[in-house]
Simulated assay, not measured.
Amino acid sequence: MVPAEGLALVVKSPQAAWARLANALYKPVRHDGMAAVHPTARIEDDVYIGIGVVIGQNAEIGSGTRLEAYSVIGPGCTIGRNCRIGAHATVYCALIGDRVHIASGAHIGEAGFGVSGDERGLIDVPQLGRVILQDDISVGSGTCIDRGAYDDTVIGEATKIDNMVQIAHNVQIGRQCIIAAHAGISGSARIGDGAMFGGRAGLIDHIAVGARAKVAAGAVVYKDVPEGEMWSGFPAKPSRQFLREAAWLSKQAAQKDKG
């Protein structure tokens, strides 16, 4: 139902049309001027700024934070106290709490992967949200956490993320989660407090993983994981079921070899 004061725009491909319109109207904020540290940046006492660091306009940096060499803090970003941003790390469109450690080469707040299309071809869907990292989070080297498309991407307190992890747009991760290297969390996934992901685990978009659930290394999850369960395999299923099926297949193969 279109509001009385609204105007309906009827198109064949609504998402692509919205993307084209939004791209025309929305212009990302870029670093302003030639100074590496913009004069409008608000930096508290006892902040270490390494060689080649770039800090954009209206950024805020809390006391005790270290910005290592060639790190980039984008316009309007807020970083709390006693954080460490590693060398060559980049932070855009982000709100970061206290005591957050972002390792070298991590990228926070880049555009998420959103693509639409129509008869004119493919188009990137603009990403208009932020990344919110709560207190005491660790983010490993080479990890990418994308900003939200519409809502924010949010990581809960004391969650620990290993190297080379991909967290897509609009993902919501709870407190005290552990995500090992090469895991991939697709867009709009919801992960409860205390969940754990083994190395190279994968999660498709819009999936929910319950609190304290575990996803084994290499597992690929295609449906919701209930609270407290452990899932394994490809496609992932409860670990006991996966192990029984693997044992049965091994037994059948052994019998055929004997035959």
Rank of each mutant, 00 (worst) to 15 (best):
F113M: 09
D135N: 15
A158F: 02
D118S: 01
L133Q: 09
S141C: 06
Y150D: 06
P126N: 09
A87W: 01
D135I: 12
A158T: 08
G109A: 10
G105N: 00
L95T: 15
G109F: 13
G129A: 05
A106P: 06
C93N: 15
V125H: 11
I108A: 07
D135M: 11
I123W: 04
D152H: 06
R84Y: 05
I161S: 14
S104R: 02
D135A: 07
I102P: 11
G121I: 05
L95S: 15
D118N: 01
L133M: 10
G80L: 14
G97I: 09
R84G: 00
D162N: 03
V139N: 04
I85Y: 10
R84T: 10
S138P: 07
E110I: 15
D151N: 05
I85K: 05
I79Q: 03
R130H: 14
I79H: 12
E157P: 04
T143M: 07
I108W: 12
V154R: 10
I132A: 14
G80H: 13
V100N: 05
T143F: 05
A158R: 13
D151K: 04
A149R: 00
I85R: 08
L122R: 11
V91R: 13
V154C: 04
T143N: 11
R99Y: 10
D152E: 06
G156K: 06
D146G: 07
I155G: 05
I85F: 09
D162Q: 09
E110N: 15
R147H: 06
A149Q: 00
M164L: 12
D98G: 14
D136S: 04
I145Y: 09
G114Y: 00
G117D: 00
I108V: 11
D98Q: 12
V115E: 04
G112P: 13
I96E: 04
T143C: 09
Q127S: 02
G105H: 01
D162K: 05
L128R: 06
G105D: 01
I96Y: 11
N163I: 02
